[in-house]
């Protein structure tokens, strides 16, 4: 067995968009155009690109939150695209997601303890007491306290909410975590805390991250490999160091040139 944990081959996803007068016409938008990626065990693969390049569609299609038009997603020898609902639910224990907006991704009517414990409840893992203990341990691990279980999401700051989102994803001890811009909604000062937490947890729990971001400064710090997407296509992939040192594709070069603060450093 190779050390590739999650592999996607030739993914295609198209959306139809209304166009023309009164939206009577339709136009096909290729969100994913023959995309193939491979995530190595225990590593972080960053997906970089501007909005509309298909990064988030890729994340959703990998987890089968959205149906693919064609292509296969291989995880532990199974093609996820062919699984039915019940089988998929079993596999999803190992595939979790941390969402972009910590203000929109937590149910405001549920207590934090319920939010984090919901996955355990659904998968029927352990007795109620065991579940409770797991939730408490996880909350403590991400830097929250036991008393926070009784609180509602609105009582927390953006950074704390993102910690809750991370706890919810990791309480099931997944193998793959898809992070869709987990720090882009946060202040610079909080970003580093969350990134460090993600790195520590990766080492402890042997996680593999698919890390979606448009901030190349963040990617440089967290990722091992990277994929650059542009208009639904993968235009460049390789190790982070190689891509940053010698970007091959003009689009990658323009992305790297656009990092704020570069001008001041070179000049």
């Amino acid at each position: 067995m190779s050390d590739i944990l999650l592999q996607a081959n030739h993914l295609v996803k198209t959306y139809t968009q209304r166009s023309g007068k009164f939206g009577f016409g339709t136009r096909l938008v290729k969100a994913l155009d023959d995309v193939s990626i491979a995530l190595k065990a225990g590593k972080t693969l960053a997906v970089v690109g501007e909005s509309g390049s298909g990064k988030s569609t890729l994340a959703r299609c990998l987890l089968q939150l959205q149906a693919l038009d064609s292509g296969e997603v291989l995880f532990a020898g199974q093609d996820l695209a062919k699984l039915d609902g019940a089988a998929l639910r079993q596999v999803r224990k190992n595939l979790q997601m941390v969402f972009q907006d910590p203000f929109a991704s937590l149910n405001p009517r549920m207590r934090v303890g319920e939010i984090v414990g919901e996955g355990l409840l659904i998968h029927g893992l352990g007795s109620a007491a065991e579940q409770q203990a797991k939730v408490i341990a996880m909350l403590k691990r991400v830097g929250l306290s036991e008393s926070d279980m009784q609180k509602y999401p609105h009582e927390f700051s953006g950074g704390q909410r993102q910690r809750i989102g991370i706890a919810r994803a990791l309480v099931l001890a997944p193998k793959v975590v898809v992070c869709d811009e987990p720090v882009s909604a946060l202040d610079v000062s909080i970003q580093a805390q969350i990134l460090l937490l993600l790195k520590e947890l990766q080492a402890e729990m042997a996680l593999s991250y698919l890390f979606i971001s448009h901030d190349l400064r963040v990617v440089r710090h967290i990722a091992d490999d990277m994929v650059v997407m542009h208009q639904g296509k993968v235009v460049e992939q390789g190790s982070v160091e190689a891509v940053y040192q010698q970007p091959q594709h003009p689009y990658t070069q323009s992305l790297l040139a656009a990092i704020p603060g570069k001008k001041a450093q070179s000049g």
Partner: peptide, 19 residues
């Protein structure tokens, strides 16, 4: 100083540091 220290750099030379 603390705020400047926690901004990630594009070269990856500077260690990540929480504020």
């Amino acid at each position: 100083k603390a705020l400047l220290a926690c901004v990630p750099d594009a070269e990856g030379k500077k260690p990540l540091k929480p504020i």
